[in-house]
Design a protein around this nucleic acid. Structure first.
Lengths: 207, 207, 207, 207
DNA sequence: TATGAATGAGTTTTCATTCAT
DNA sequence: GATGAATGAAAACTCATTCAT
């Protein structure tokens, strides 16, 4: 059959999104993929490997698109915009759910933890770079430890996703992004302020 | 045996903290409680009920202590302090983990979702009240939709807990709280600015 | 159900005798015992444990009866007689087969080896004691290293059993025992020769 | 690939020696041979056939060398020497293990039995001829039924091998051969004796 | 209340084998 | 000759749950 590995990866993703870590059994995955259960083991060795391969795949795809978005991002406003779009798509597509379920599942299967962490780090790195890019040269640069904030934001996404799973109807995220968008001009001013004292040593990010 | 129900509740909590939702089987719980598996069904009907009872129990206990802490909380500084203490204890004690594992497990067992949500709401309410209390009468009151921020904070806790499960070593939360503490005076000033009418009745948070 | 453990032990013995180590699956055992497969794990933890418990049981039973036979054994003739009877019953009842299959299976499941060895030793000890008893004070006592010969005899039983499995029709053992019986008087004479000091206390094996 | 059949035969032998009959799966064999699993079926039809082919191969090789050794064997002393050397090499090389595992496995797969027996007979024949050669014309010739003793010896080898698998450290065989070597002169004398008296009347085995 | 035993459906994984290329 | 992919059956074992006592 053509693309069995791809079918399995897709099926694994869909299944974990719909039925969670515990519901993602060999039978469920293979059933959805329309292939024999044994093929999971033929192609991936075991279920955990398939799950990690699935995580790799989504991660890689999304990272690519976000990297290209980041290139066009210059200001905090842009970044909030990017964050909002990312949130919308990731939540809707269940990307974050895959991650949060795998993390939650790591408590049961301890070997999973390090592997998932390895795949989470690029996202924290990406968020760090994003923050650094838009705060570079401003007062915020000193004020805000980029990596910590980045980690916090990634955690925030994970948590919002958990809440969204519980209660898909009431998502505060959209409203919060709106608020954030309204507040960023203030932040921008703050940044400008901060940049005054800084001006002699370092020019502002955008000349 | 005396206190079998309590033993089971305790065992269920410990087990879910250590082995996650999927690892919390009847055998594991009963084994840890040192009682017969069948007693789970005698006392709680099924495992999900035991888990929910366990969630009820921790929730109630913690809510009580937090309520009394909130009474002494007046300013944003106080609240950040409260949040930091809450975070420390909840994380260390695994309270949040119980919640995040149950939410993650809700994807697998759909009936769990509504029940967990029911038990999560009091916390969002509590956070909402906390925010309202410290922003009442200030500019922030209008600026910040208390309930959305409260939900966001609860989500944030959940997410940080997931990250902490993955990588207990690197927890950005403590550092973030420190930063927040350093920033709140500024926020306090912002609030003072905004609160024209309020000024007579209540002094700004930081003099 | 009454005697489930006993039924399982019996079924395990019968199954290994009939279908060998590899054919002794949970399904086969439980099927023969007429009980649910899961009871194997409830009562014994895993299949290997059941197999070892089964070995324990037969071993204990047989050891008892052989011990009492040994008490009545005084001469080499008696011992050859005992060996022949033991061989007949053990082979017919498949006792040795259980052992040889478990040893052969130990190559596949390495953890089995030490456990089986632990249960084999009492038999080598028994054989050693038997030999020592009938050779004590004779020339053979010095000539023959009792433990080595005992080990050899146990090995011999195992090997004969393997051959018997292959070709139940042609068993040389019976004929060999007949020969041995005919030769022992000569051995007895040899012993009498060697035993100068012994002569007064104990009459030679064959009068 | 060159010599695929040979590689498979070698791999099958090594695998059965190391992991026993039950551990000798298509995957294990092919993996060790470094070839595709399907080639087992292409070249040998099924696993059992490969195993039998492997047995054929070792058997043939060893038989050749033993035949040439037998030619130089004239006395019982020589024969004990030959037996000891054979034992050492066969045990070390695992030749006997292949046989004992296949016999033990025959209980599970009944079709295997006759085939293995067919390949075992030449060895019993060889042992018979060896015994006959060194006892010819002596008293022992009548005393000892060569074929039965030969069968017994083959069984003995099998049994010793089983024991050796269980406890490679303590092998009584070497010590026993030493003893046998020390005893054979006596046997030789017995033979000489017997041959003299034999010539005239020959006394019955038991008086 | 409590227990030991039981059950049937489920889990992950491996097996020997086949087949199209 | 050789390979990668596929398959259905079976392996060992665990699950939540029930029941008689």
């Amino acid at each position: 059959m053509t693309g069995t590995k791809e079918r399995l990866v897709d099926a694994a993703l869909t299944t974990i999104k719909e039925h969670g870590y515990g519901g993602t059994t060999a039978r469920a995955i293979a059933g959805r993929a329309g292939v024999n259960q044994a093929l999971i083991y033929y192609h991936f060795g075991d279920i955990k490997n398939l799950l990690l391969a699935a995580l790799d795949e989504t991660s890689a795809k999304r990272m690519l698109s976000y990297e290209s978005l980041l290139e066009k991002t210059e200001t905090i406003d842009d970044l909030v915009q990017l964050a909002r779009d990312a949130y919308r798509e990731d939540l809707a597509a269940g990307h974050v759910t895959v991650l949060s379920e795998l993390i939650a599942g790591s408590l049961q299967h301890k070997q999973l933890g390090p592997e998932v962490l390895k795949r989470l780090r690029p996202w924290i790195d990406f968020a760090t770079r994003s923050i650094e890019k838009v705060t570079r040269g401003s007062a915020l640069e000193q004020l805000v430890p980029a990596r910590d904030v980045a980690t916090a934001i990634v955690g925030f996404y994970l948590g919002l996703d958990l809440l969204h799973q519980l209660d898909p109807a009431e998502s505060p995220a959209e409203r919060l992004f709106d608020h954030a968008a309204r507040l960023t001009p203030a932040l921008g001013m703050l940044m400008a302020f901060g940049t005054v004292e800084n001006e002699t040593e370092r020019p502002p990010a955008s000349t």
